[in-house]
Simulated assay, not measured.
Amino acid sequence: MPWFTACVGLLAVVAAVVLALSGHGEVAVAVGAVGVAVAGTGGLRVTVNVRR
């Protein structure tokens, strides 16, 4: 099921970027953290850095 973790990681990154650009930085960090946690268990690691 590596495709599932890759899709969840990609979705989390896209959601975090959209939320960060719309001014919801705190929520973007939380979504990014969830994406990293899910992807980290499947061998794929995604890191999201949100800067204002």
Rank of each mutant, 00 (worst) to 15 (best):
A37R: 05
A39E: 00
G40R: 01
A20D: 06
L21G: 12
T5G: 10
G42M: 08
V48D: 03
A28T: 03
W3I: 15
G32D: 09
A30M: 13
M1E: 11
V18R: 06
C7W: 09
L19N: 04
R52D: 09
V50E: 05
M1S: 13
P2D: 15
A37T: 13
V34Y: 06
L19C: 09
R52W: 05
V14H: 09
L21Y: 10
A12L: 02
A30N: 08
G23V: 04
W3A: 14
F4L: 14
T5P: 03
V17P: 05
W3P: 06
T5W: 02
V48G: 01
G32S: 09
C7Q: 11
V38Q: 05
V34P: 00
V17H: 08
N49T: 11
V38D: 01
P2N: 15
W3Y: 14
P2A: 14
A33G: 13
N49G: 08
G23P: 02
L44H: 04
T41S: 05
A12W: 01
A33M: 11
V34I: 15
T41A: 12
A6I: 15
A20E: 02
A12E: 01
L19E: 09
C7G: 08
A20M: 00
R51H: 08
A20G: 10
A16V: 03
W3L: 14
E26L: 15
F4P: 00
V31R: 03
L44Q: 07
A12D: 03
T41R: 11
G23M: 07
C7V: 13
R51Y: 02
